[in-house]
Amino acid sequence: MKAIQTFIDHYNYFITIFLMVAGLYVVIARGNMVKKLIGLSIFQTSVYLLYIAPGKIIGGTAPIIDPAFKVYSNPLPHVLILTAIVVGVATLALGLALVVRINEAYGTIEEDEIFRQDGGK
């Protein structure tokens, strides 16, 4: 009973952990480069959640100063994650660009196939 209660209280963390592990698994297990990048994005998304979730203060409101409210949510995580999302998008874009170039050069985006073409290196 207690375990379930812990789970429900911290469900956001479990989602984070699930996304993190799932993303990492895809990156490692898939040979297709686009799928690898998708996995990487899921992995990064988990971090966004990790930061954002604790920023919400229960009962708090949007952080715009007004005498009517005493409790505000923490705005800083949102700002940080906005930056992180930008970084993530840039990484994804660059990764996809590289995949396009790799496809032009090798005619495939499967890692095994590319290794075979380069003689095992």
């Binding site: 990156v27 480069m33 690898k36 990487l40 990484t91 660059l94 990764g95 590289l98 995949v99 170039r101 790799i102 050069a105 090798y106 590319i114 380069d118 290196k121």
Partner: peptide, 12 residues
């Protein structure tokens, strides 16, 4: 062309 692969692997 292996530079592309190296860059991709490093990116990941």
């Amino acid at each position: 062309r292996r530079a592309l692969l190296a860059a991709f692997q490093y990116l990941i």
